[in-house]
Design a protein around this nucleic acid. Structure first.
Length: 290
DNA sequence: GAATGTCTCCATG
DNA sequence: CATGGAGACATTC
């Protein structure tokens, strides 16, 4: 439990702001029919409209109104439709020089061998730590080869979140070491520190099929989105969209491997392992980074 | 648009 | 070999 005490001293204000933002997004997605005004929302959260506006904008880089805009079906469709650039064919190297990726987080990745996957994490040492993030509490997991896991939890839900992750590689050795994971957290959640010069090292641990799907996800730049069938196409199995969905859902490095940029063919968000609210939050937050 | 129902596909265990 | 899912599509309100 002392991990929670540590949170306060870590990067702020991004951590606490998310609680407010989360409630706003939740409220809006439940009552979207009534088009709740800023006043209604702030009253429900027991805050003044101006204060809410301020918190929200600090978090999102967007006004609540702009954020709402960014999370509508219309906008999602727009993200999907920008087909002028060769999207999934774009290699990381090509992306490096592309102006559209200037503000994206750059990643180099390696995949574990099938043998290593079969060992279910055996022989692997994984260090982990909880850190505040713009999307709630982030669980960061790293091997000496690089970032291996990134998960999210709401306050008080750290334990189930940790189990969700450790179950995936049951034979690994786990060491709580938030000092070791801190630099990853800082790097990932501060767009100012995203740079193409020093890409983030990432290790993909999964089945062959899953790894191919995750590699495909890594090619989606900030401000774009693809459908599950696009990905199926990209990995050469055009009819496997449903299996792709399952694989996307098992992505162990959420956010860094941008599974939130995978949408249904009609632009609907369709699902997210760490909660649809978080998926909305990520898409909205990213809209504010562009 | 949203909600509901049906059909199909394929990785996973 | 059974299973079921973060899909796709059609139909209806």
């Amino acid at each position: 439990m002392n991990m929670i005490a540590n949170l306060k001293t870590d990067i702020t204000p991004e951590g606490p702001d998310y609680e407010t933002v989360r409630k706003v997004i939740e409220l809006i997605s439940e009552d979207y029919r009534d088009q709740p005004s800023l006043e209604t929302i702030s009253a429900a959260l027991n805050q003044s409209p101006t204060q809410l506006q301020k918190t929200f904008t600090r978090w999102a880089g967007l006004s609540p109104k702009g954020f709402l805009q960014a999370v509508t079906l219309d906008h999602a469709k727009r993200l999907l439709r920008q087909e002028e650039l060769p999207l999934l064919e774009t290699s990381l190297e090509v992306g490096l020089s592309g102006p559209g990726r200037l503000h994206d987080l750059f990643v180099t990745h390696e995949a574990m061998s099938p043998g290593e996957w079969k060992a279910r994490g055996g022989g692997l040492t994984i260090r982990y730590g909880f850190h505040p993030s713009p999307f709630g509490i982030a669980l960061v997991m790293a091997t000496d080869r690089g970032l291996a896991g990134l998960a999210f939890a709401d306050v008080g839900q750290e334990q189930p979140c940790l189990e969700d992750m450790t179950c995936r590689w049951p034979n690994a050795e786990y060491i709580e070491d938030s000092e070791a994971t801190q630099s990853y957290a800082t790097r990932i959640f501060q767009p100012g520190q995203w740079s193409a010069d020093q890409p983030l090292r990432v290790v993909l641990i999964g089945t062959d099929f899953q790894v191919r799907v995750w590699e495909s996800l890594l090619k989606i730049p900030l401000g774009r989105a693809v459908t599950y069938s696009d990905i199926a196409q990209d990995i050469g199995q055009p009819t496997a969209s449903r299996a792709v969905g399952a694989a996307v859902g098992r992505n162990p490095i959420s956010f860094v491997v941008p599974c939130h940029r995978a949408l249904g063919k009609n632009g609907a968000l369709t699902g997210y392992h760490w909660g649809l609210t978080r998926k909305r939050a990520m898409l909205g937050w990213e809209a504010g980074q562009m």
